[in-house]
Amino acid sequence: MVKANKPGNHDSDSGADPIAAALKQMHDAVANEELPADFLKLLDEIDMKIADKKASH
């Protein structure tokens, strides 16, 4: 059985537990991807809403 992971302490656990390290690597691989254009477009829409609200005050 795999040794239990201690949550919230990524770095030290990842070194000791290959499954935890693999999960962390999977997470990091996605997290380090460049943000797709769709997301940036949605953020632009949010920014416009914020700007509109500010302008109306």
Binding site: D28, V30, A31, N32, E33, L35, F39, L43, I46, K53
Partner: peptide, 21 residues
């Protein structure tokens, strides 16, 4: 709203990773 937006942006990489999983 700006504070919320900034928190959202900061969390997007982790959100995408959780979603992918």
């Amino acid at each position: 709203d700006k504070v919320f937006r900034d928190q959202l942006v900061a969390l997007l990489p982790s959100l995408r990773a959780f979603s992918r999983g």
